[in-house]
Amino acid sequence: MGRLRLYSLVAVAIGLVSGTLSDRTPKPEAVTRGAYRVLEGDFHAHTRFSDGFLSPFGLVLQASRRELDVIGVTEHNYVFPGLLARWFSRLIDGPIVLPGSEITRRGYHVIVLGQTRRVDPDLPLSEQLIRVHAQGALAIAAHPVRKFWPALVPLVGEFDGCEVMHPIAFRGDSPTGWRWSDMVEFYRKGLARNPTFAAIGSSDYHFFSPLGVVRTLLFVRSADEAGVIEAIRKGKTVTFGPHGERFGPAELLKLLDREPYRPRTSDYHYRGRGVLDVAGRTLAFLGFLGFCFLGGRRRRMGA
């Protein structure tokens, strides 16, 4: 290995040590409102087993970094990565992980939470919802924009909730026709049929940093998997729109009026913490470039 390449590798190694030591996020303190413990969750996340970048283990670490108390791992028609993530999170005393899937069909998407057995995506939606509930899991209508309404609206009362807040809310009018206002309207339809229809906010995370950029507040009796499922089933959730709109039951909104709660923020902008962290990141970046593209090897004449 040439000298330049060696120096670059050393730079990467320093960046690795610095990055690993700097990557500390303290466990969030327990927060209560009224008789409830308040948790922050993101219920729609993918791993590299479908179209995400992170592994199931990396996703759990990312959730800790984003100060999330609970996540849903929801691969397309595939449960195994969620079970893997839950196993790992229990091992490291990480966030609560609800294994699940995103039933993905051309006409609709459904987030399933607390699932252990795959539901055949080729069944009719009504049958899928029966099978989801039969295993004690939850069915959340995923980003219910108008193009999915023909399948979703007739069965809106069978869902436990819907995504009323999603990153498409930040994008304005989409050329593909995905509008946040449709999701809000679907939520109101669900609420009219079912007073415990849960308001869910999710990031639909695939890659980069924004896991938890949209999140749900859960008002739970117990901070565990059963407590989270019970809270969603009873509609004890609140999520926030891009301009501070609140979606959730009046009882919980009154609790928040009395004692406001601001969801935790995290380092979405990749800023370093302190000089050493910034230096470590820069070294890791430049070192990688150098390692890939710099040589420095003396070569003999070839034959």
Partner: peptide
């Protein structure tokens, strides 16, 4: 680097 903004061993 894209998830955490730094190089983390795990």
């Amino acid at each position: 680097m894209t998830a955490a903004g730094r190089l983390v061993a795990w």
